[in-house]
């Protein structure tokens, strides 16, 4: 009891391909947990399982004690799990403001009368402005999503995830493709979000970023969990080094 997120013996097979095998770990409220591993280790698959994109083959995923089995992505989002994508996907043809408004409407998409009400109200516009201000997009509200540079698209995705008023956000390689100063700003932003009580599960390939953000790391390799612990322990773990660099007698 008391875990925010519980990955309980999760297995996922895609027609014979074993994407994940008996993975278990837990996440506590207020934590920033890093999820690392070589390409094809199953990190994004795990994100897709948590968000309900496809069902687990066996095992269970619990969020705040609720089993997420059978819930589709929109339900999981409404429960308070936001996510960003490895390859950014803002709503290209919508304005920056509308991008955030879509997610702000999460509580309006369930009832008939709620979904037929106007979306541009003083309250929702103020909420959108506030979120955009928080990620530094305050003066770009009327810009089309597709017209932002990559770094800002990533911030827009974070603002959109925050608009769900989530307890947990899943960041899929937030630092990928960013310049050094953009990375520093991103780390500050993630810490700020976390400071407001939102837990963060982050997939990241950039080790310095992971080491600076996370107090605890889970390492996946070929669909299994091979290590879990604080950054220093992970860095020295022979199995992790082997997964990333290969065995000495291979070389």
């Amino acid at each position: 009891m008391g875990h925010l997120l519980e990955i309980d013996d999760v297995t996922k097979h895609f027609e014979g391909l074993k994407a994940l095998e008996n993975v278990s770990f837990t996440m506590e409220e207020g934590e920033i947990l890093g999820l690392i591993g070589p390409n094809g280790a199953g990190k994004t698959t795990l994100f897709n399982l948590i968000t309900g994109t496809f069902p687990v083959t066996s095992g269970a995923i619990r969020f705040n004690g609720t089993d997420l089995a059978g819930m589709g992505p929109s339900k999981v989002a409404a429960l308070g799990i936001g996510r960003t994508f490895q390859i950014v996907r803002p709503f290209a043809g919508l304005t920056v403001e509308e991008n955030v408004l879509v997610a702000l409407g999460v509580s309006h998409y369930t009832g008939f009368w709620k979904s037929v009400s106007r979306y541009r109200t003083t309250d929702t516009l103020a909420a959108a402005r506030e979120l955009l201000g928080r990620v530094g997009l305050g003066n770009l509200a009327d810009r089309k999503g597709e017209n932002l540079p990559l770094g800002l698209k990533k911030r827009l995705e974070i603002a959109r995830a925050l608009a769900l008023r989530p307890k947990l956000i899943l960041l899929d390689e937030p630092a990928g493709g960013l310049r050094k100063e953009e990375m520093d700003q991103l780390i500050d932003l993630v810490r700020e979000i976390n400071g407001e009580g939102i837990s963060v599960l982050v997939i990241e390939h950039n080790m310095p970023v992971v080491m600076r953000l996370c107090r605890r790391i889970v390492v996946l390799d070929h669909g299994t969990k091979i290590a879990e612990g604080p950054p220093e322990a992970i860095q020295g773990n022979p199995q992790v080094i082997e997964a990333y660099l290969g065995r000495e007698d291979d070389a």
Binding site: T51, T53, K75, P90, L94, E98, Y109
Partner: peptide, 26 residues
């Protein structure tokens, strides 16, 4: 066009995956 439903439709048109992760039931 002015309702949440209309905004939900626009989000589906733009990106179905991102729409459902934003709480829109496709």
């Amino acid at each position: 066009r002015r309702s949440w439903a209309g905004l939900a439709l626009a989000s589906i048109r733009e990106d179905e995956t991102a729409a459902e992760m934003s709480g829109v039931n496709l």
